[in-house]
């Protein structure tokens, strides 16, 4: 410590240091649950985590081993369907709100998106049930995908809008002053500049959808057998976990833990891939 410090200087330094320590502690508190969940599911499920778990089908009750290959593929298909319907709608709606959204209609859309993001996912499941399952008269991957799409839309819409708004207005002006039509300015200049943020939003939406169980219970239903048909019921990791975790068999419970770990790891890997693909060609400013 410098001897020239007055008591007031010392008090200020003390406050500054305390706040830094406090902030660091808060970071730690925020990270601890993540680490705990990750390690606990790993510890609980490690006994079932092996190659067979990934490539085998579930075995009948009583038989040892078995895997969740169908659930893994099923989750992939459900997310793909959800993304196929949800992302274009969400991203285009976000672009509309950011670029043309100064009117009453846009205000309504924005409000609806906020309300939709707060709707319990099981209610969204009921909606998909009415929209898709009832007309088709049976459960299907399509119905599950639609439910997930509805859940993705508000997140994607709002983050896309926010990220586009963050792009400095001067880029928009530069594009327009070059004689580019507004849509071209948006697509070729604004969107690339906002890509990173939009990707984060898309990822959040997909991650949230990947973890949904409730809306899949009576749309995609689940399937003990191999199926990739979108018109048929399909297995998913979350429903697999739901079934196996409440089953009275220790072996199944362990597999549920393992599936939980796989689901977390999947989202983790997905984020890494997304970040790599959309990384800027140039270092950040």
């Amino acid at each position: 410590m410098n001897a020239n410090l007055t008591p007031y200087d010392f008090w200020r330094k003390f406050k500054s240091t305390s706040m830094s320590v406090l902030a660091a502690l808060c970071v730690l508190v925020a990270v601890i649950p993540l680490v705990m969940i990750f390690s606990y599911t790993l510890v609980q499920g490690i006994g079932s985590l092996n190659l067979n778990f990934f490539i085998n089908m579930p075995k009948p009750v009583g038989e040892a081993g078995g895997g969740m290959a169908n659930a893994l593929v099923g989750t992939g298909i459900l997310l793909a369907i959800g993304a196929l319907f949800g992302l274009p709608v969400g991203i285009l709606a976000g672009i509309y709100l950011a670029e043309y959204g100064q009117n009453r209609f846009a205000g309504v859309v924005r409000f609806m998106a906020d309300v939709l993001s707060g709707v319990p996912s099981i209610v969204v499941g009921v909606v998909a049930y009415i929209l898709v399952v009832l007309p088709m008269k049976h459960f299907s991957a399509l119905a599950g995908g639609v439910a997930l799409a509805i859940l993705m839309i508000p997140t994607v819409t709002r983050t896309t809008e926010e990220m586009i708004r963050l792009v400095p207005h001067s880029y928009r002006e530069a594009g327009l002053a070059l004689g580019l039509p507004q849509w071209k300015t948006t697509v070729r200049i604004i969107l690339p500049a906002a890509l990173k943020g939009i990707t984060t939003g898309v990822l959040l939406a997909i991650a949230r959808a990947a973890g949904e169980t409730a809306p899949l219970l009576f749309t995609a239903l689940g399937n003990r057998f191999w199926s990739t048909a979108i018109g048929q019921p399909i297995a998913s990791l979350t429903v697999f976990i739901y079934d196996y975790a409440k089953a009275p068999f220790e072996d199944w419970n362990r597999q549920a833990w393992a599936a939980g770990f796989v689901l977390i790891a999947l989202i983790f890997v997905l984020s890494l891939i997304f970040r790599f693909v959309t990384r800027s060609r140039y270092a950040e400013r």
Binding site: P168, S170, Y171, E173, A174, G175, L176, A177, L178, G179, L180, P181, R188, I189, P192, A193, L195, S280, R281, Y282, R285
Partner: peptide, 29 residues
């Protein structure tokens, strides 16, 4: 769009397109 191609503009704050190279910035228009 036609007007602004004939009457170009340079702004107070330099605003090169951040996602483009030097070459692409000039070629953008």
């Amino acid at each position: 769009v036609v007007l602004r191609r004939r009457v170009g503009m340079v702004f107070q704050k330099a605003n090169p397109f951040p996602t483009m190279s030097i070459f692409d910035n000039v070629a953008a228009g």
